[in-house]
Structure formats: structure tokens, C-alpha cells
Design a protein around this nucleic acid. Structure first.
Lengths: 242, 242
DNA sequence: ACAAAAGTGTTTGTGTTACACCCATGC
DNA sequence: GCATGGGTGTAACACAAACACTTTTGT
């Protein structure tokens, strides 16, 4: 990442992305850890160029972390409290990193840029976790998928941003038929059910769930079957919008 | 309104308000007409001070037009396309108002402020139309309630903003029980039904509608009755959150 | 008495929940 | 055969739509 204060960005406006994935019966969120001392985690974020739309900016930020451009992505809320300024966070970061912050990395101009109040547009994205190789940028120490029930201690209001993203995901899941963005190309009905159970954090009745999903008429049943264990082999399904 | 470029506002970020009212079986929107030549209508808008939250800014803008502070208000979407810049609109405005724009009203500094790209946060509000006396500010020629089916020719993407606000209103109406913000203190069941019919632009069955609304358990039936015409007098109701 | 509009009850249909049963597979 | 998990069917229930009837009021 270049010095944002030298870029042609819209000022005091940022985008925070809640990137959802699904693996091992857990709903997960992609969260980078910053390189600075002090264990700082922060949602994938970025700014908006003067000549790109906010959707394009969000997609660019997303592509930088996932490598994928055609991902389900939607804005869900603006976070604009005065108390969410990054000043406190940055002062603590500077305090803990005395001497380590080279002038070229964190000059006055950049410090002035970051310490101003920011209003942030929240986006959430749904990806097939198997396709994605998380990519860290130059201020990340690492980037990993975290179970939404065991998120690291993120900065500022990022926990609330995730909570609001999850609320929106739950509200839109049936309405917009977006759950299948979290699954691989083909999947069994049980996998769909476990995904729903991870998202809503509650169990569903097996037979009724199957009926409900099939009644959506968006799944294609593949005649192929799954090889497995000491039981009947489940059908595989594929999502098809129609 | 003062010169915004001299105020301590967040730059390139604005708030547009869709203020809904209800009267004569019509869902209405409060829309000011600008004083400039050329018949420009624009939603009530404003900017965000550095030391106020976006909700506070929206409430301040709303109070300026309605005189009321405790109004139902909610953000619903960000409008951030690059094509929504006000440059085209302003160039046409300047062209049509040659000579009429005093230097004190529209100086270079202000023109520079306004012609930059703006990203706008959409808020919608619900008010009791009888309580409100619409107030124009110093760049309004007039301000009036318009039937949502017959809105004036608004600038930029304000028609889309209203359409999105209406979508959100419809989605949240039952969920959040907010319809009663559009009605006076007391009202009949028929008035509630006509309001719903105006919002959804479709008829409801009288008896089933009454059952549905009463089953919400948020209305208090007043023993008083309405004086009227050659028919049975309807009950009056009052909304009570509980 | 009658028309008009309000209030209420009953039947019908639909969709969700709960329970039960059958099928395929490996041991 | 039998345990295991997958697939399907049916009854019970809740909710919403459609239909019908009664009540109040002014003319």
C-alpha cells in the first residue's frame, strides 16, 4: 500500500469489508493481522479513488485480498459515529512501536491523513473458501480465516461491523438465494443444511430443510452420487439461477 | 445556508433525505424547489460536520425542513456511482442563471466545492404530515409535498434515491412497525389500511387486514367513537409500543 | 326500511413443523 | 442382519386468503 495521503482518494471515507467463507461447519471471516507490535487485527479496508464508484472500490479491495473479482458483494451499512475515529488506536500503535516506524512508512502527512475522523461504508462478500488463497498486503503480518464465534480482538468498531454484516446476511439469505456463493461448485444437501446452521447458529430439521431448499427450484440434482461410508450415498447438487 | 466550503464539513460526502408523509390516501415526499431559473427540484440535503455523527447530521437536516427533532429516521443506502456528480447539473444551472448569481452567493471557492464528486448517504424519514410546516431555506423557491406517483423532475439520481427509499420502507414496514409514524395520534382502522394501500400500491382485504393489524398487539382501541355519516361509527386507535 | 360502512366469525387453502417410514451401503 | 445416514411421505398445526353474516348509523 502506498502513502494514501499522496493518492487521489476521497478523504475521510473508507470501505470495510466483511469477507465470509465457510469451512468445517463454521462460518468464517477473513481478517488480516497488522505488522505492528501490539497484536492489531483489522478488517480488510481501503479508500475510494476519485474516478471509481464505491462498488468498484470495494471490488478492488476484495480482489487484493482474495484474487477474485467476480464475488458476491453488497454494501450493508454506513458507520459514521464520531467516536469511531482511529486516533486512539493509532496513538496506541505509535506508542507501542516507538522507533520501529520509519519516517518513510509513517510520516507526518500520512499520520495526519489517518488520524482524521473516518466514515466507513460496510460491505460484505461471500466466497468459496476453497478457491481463495488469502493475500496479505505490506502492512499485514498475516491474514487468516477466523470462526465468526472466535474472532480475534479487532480494532475500533470492527466487531460491530461484523455483527451488522451477519444480521444482513441472515436477512438476505433466503430472499436473495446467496448461500450457494459460500459452497463449492457441487455439494450435498447436508452441506447446505450445515451451512445454514452455521449462519443462523441453530439446528434445522433434516427432512423439512430439504423440502424447503428444493422448493426454491434453484438446484440441479446431479445423477452422480457421492462415494462414502456405511450408508446411502447422497445426491450432489449444483446451483443454477433460473 | 452558509458557504459550505468555509464550514468545517467532511468533504465530498453528503446526506440526502427522503421525507415521507401521508395525506388524502397518498404517500407523499417533501421536495424543495431551488430558487434558480430552470425548475430544479432536489431532495433535502446537507453535509456532515466534523464533530457530529452521520445520524446527527441527518437529524439536523431534517429538523431544518420540518421543525421536528424526534422523527423516525434511518439510513438505507449509499449512492456512490461516479456518474452521479453534480457537475452537469451545476453547469446547466450556471448557464441558465447568467448574471443572476452574485459573487457572494456562488464564488469560485464554493463552485469548486460543489462541482467535485459527491458520495451521498440516503436517509428516509416518516412524519405526521399534519404536524409539519415545511420550511424552505435560502436556496429554496418553495417546498411542498408531492404524491410519490407524481414527483417533480428532480436533479441527478434523486428519483432513484426515492425509489430505493420506498423499497426499504416496504421491506421494513411490518418488521419494524413504523407505519404509525405517518399517522396522527389517533386514527381509524380504515385509515391504516388506506395508508398501507398507498405504500404498497395495492388493495388489501378489509377484514383480514384488520385482523392482521390487531394481531400485532401494538394498538390501543379507544372506547371513543368517530362521528360521521350514515353508517356504523369506527373505533379510534392509538399506537403504543409494548 | 334501506344503504353504507364497520365489526366479527367461519371456511378454505397454503405453507411450516413434527413424526414416521423406507432405501442404500459397509461391516 | 444391522447400524448408519439419506430420501420421502403424511398428519398436525399455524397462518393467511376468501367468503359470509351481523351491527350501527343517517336518511
Amino acid at each position: 500500500m502506498h502513502n494514501p495521503s499522496e493518492q487521489n482518494y476521497i478523504q475521510q471515507l473508507s470501505i470495510d469489508c466483511v469477507i465470509f467463507g465457510y469451512q468445517n461447519k463454521q462460518l468464517k471471516v477473513l481478517v488480516p493481522k497488522l505488522i505492528f507490535k501490539g497484536d492489531f487485527w483489522a478488517l480488510p479496508s481501503g479508500f475510494i479513488y476519485q474516478n471509481e464508484s464505491i462498488d468498484e472500490a470495494a471490488r478492488r479491495i476484495l480482489e487484493g485480498r482474495t484474487g477474485f473479482k467476480d464475488i458476491y458483494l453488497e454494501q450493508f451499512r454506513v458507520f459514521g459515529e464520531t467516536g469511531r475515529s482511529s486516533r486512539q488506536f493509532l496513538e496506541r500503535l505509535v506508542e507501542l512501536n516507538q522507533g520501529d516506524l520509519g519516517a518513510e512508512r509513517f510520516n507526518n502527512q500520512e499520520f495526519e491523513w489517518f488520524t482524521r475522523r473516518f466514515i466507513s461504508i460496510g460491505y460484505y462478500a461471500l466466497v468459496d473458501i476453497n478457491k481463495v488463497t488469502p493475500q496479505k498486503n505490506n502492512i499485514d503480518e498475516s491474514i487468516d480465516w477466523y470462526d465468526i464465534k472466535h474472532l480475534p480482538d479487532m480494532i475500533m468498531d470492527h466487531h460491530e461491523i461484523v455483527a451488522r454484516a451477519l444480521d444482513t446476511l441472515r436477512l438476505n439469505l433466503d430472499e436473495k438465494l446467496i448461500a450457494f456463493n459460500l459452497l463449492p461448485e457441487t455439494f450435498t444437501m447436508k452441506e447446505v443444511q450445515e451451512l445454514y446452521e452455521a449462519i443462523y447458529d441453530k439446528p434445522f430439521a433434516r427432512n423439512n430443510f430439504q423440502k424447503k431448499i428444493l422448493d426454491l427450484n434453484v438446484l440441479e440434482r446431479l445423477e452422480k452420487k457421492f462415494t462414502g461410508a456405511a450408508n446411502k450415498a447422497p445426491y450432489l447438487y449444483r446451483f443454477q439461477r433460473s
